[in-house]
Design a protein around this nucleic acid. Structure first.
Lengths: 194, 194
DNA sequence: TTACAACAGTTATAGCCTGTAACTGTAGTT
DNA sequence: AACTACAGTTACAGGCTATAACTGTTGTAA
């Protein structure tokens, strides 16, 4: 079989894996990462649970693929925005938008880590792909003044400040508080880029 | 039986509940909140699992008690610091110290929430007890200048910025990055209070 | 001081999950 | 057309939460 051509077997496997991922995200959006169940997914797909172990060797392997997928999605988004006209402002905007649209994805990447679970090296690479456009953005802004903070320092601050607002909002900690998170976010972005 | 006096039965119940909580935190520090198991705790205590249901009607009830306990601990700390000489700087310092000492407690309060789990009203009250000293601190700083942000806005910003640094550090997202989170934190505090 | 009721802790069981082993039948492939 | 690779099955081991029904102890009140 030609290596580049996908035979029917491989094609079928890919389709099943994709459907599993879709249903996994559905489950996670409803009941959180801890409720992710291969059994439940299998049942939804009209299979028995052991059948799915042909496609994912463990629940952890599925989780890893979901994490990598989410990282890649976010990395693509940030790279695209970084290259666009709005630059860092665009990145900031897109970041919050993405997080609010897919809270479970954001929380899976930046929320409470699963102790004992070690992210594969691929995740580190993707995390750097997300950070790189921010670094590049601040490097481009850099003026000659010696007393201004370095662009890595500004990039880090950019990240932590935006994450501070986003993560609390996504985790629902602003519920019941009378104020507009969007306004706070805009103000923070303005201060970071001003 | 006098209402204020604790009989032997009540005393024993209290001791068991306390021991359960201690062991629960031990478990959570090692394996995270999702690994919290009444069965395992019971075994450690030389009991069978159903026995523990005399003391906690469900795993969720135990979790609720742990969350409320953590909130109360943090609220006490923040109130104490707020009343101390260092004021807001002291609160900031204590907050990071507490989070790094008890990462699981911090993550349980501010990390990924369990979907479907609704924090009891008591938690909201405690969350306000944590926020109040910060609000008071900025209200005290307030100058006459009309263009400066209001103290609620500054308080909120104080919270989100500090949380941004702390939560990423506690979740291990700074591992492998070459820089000092403590320095970043100090800088952020200085900017917030300067 | 004794009688009894309240209650701690037990075993048994139902129901959910992950994951493995052994088997069967079908569908690509040669 | 024959065969083998593999998808999917049932059966099972072991872990968890939680309930039900039972037993034995102990605080307590008459």
């Amino acid at each position: 079989m030609d290596e580049t051509t996908e035979g029917p077997r491989a094609r079928y496997r890919r389709q099943i894996r994709e459907e599993v991922q879709v249903r996994a995200w559905e489950q996670m959006s409803q009941d959180g990462a801890s409720a992710l169940s291969l059994k439940a997914i299998a049942t939804q797909m009209g299979m028995t649970a052991p059948a799915l172990y042909r496609y994912y060797s463990s629940r952890d392997e599925l989780l890893t693929e979901l994490i990598l997928g989410a990282y890649a999605e976010l990395a693509d988004l940030v790279e695209r925005e970084g290259a666009g006209d709005a630059g860092l402002a665009g990145i900031a905007e897109a970041l919050r938008g993405w997080a609010l649209t897919h809270p479970q994805k954001y929380l899976l990447l930046y929320g409470t880590p699963v102790p004992g679970y070690h992210a594969p090296d691929a995740a580190t690479v993707l995390a750097q792909r997300i950070f790189a456009p921010i670094l590049a953005g601040f490097a481009a802004l850099e003026g000659g003044s010696a007393e201004a903070p370095s662009s890595p320092a500004r990039s880090l601050r950019f990240w932590t400040r935006l994450h501070g607002v986003i993560s609390l909002e996504v985790a629902g900690h602003f519920r019941g508080v009378e104020f507009d998170p969007a306004q706070l976010y805009r103000d923070e972005v303005a201060l970071l880029l001003g």
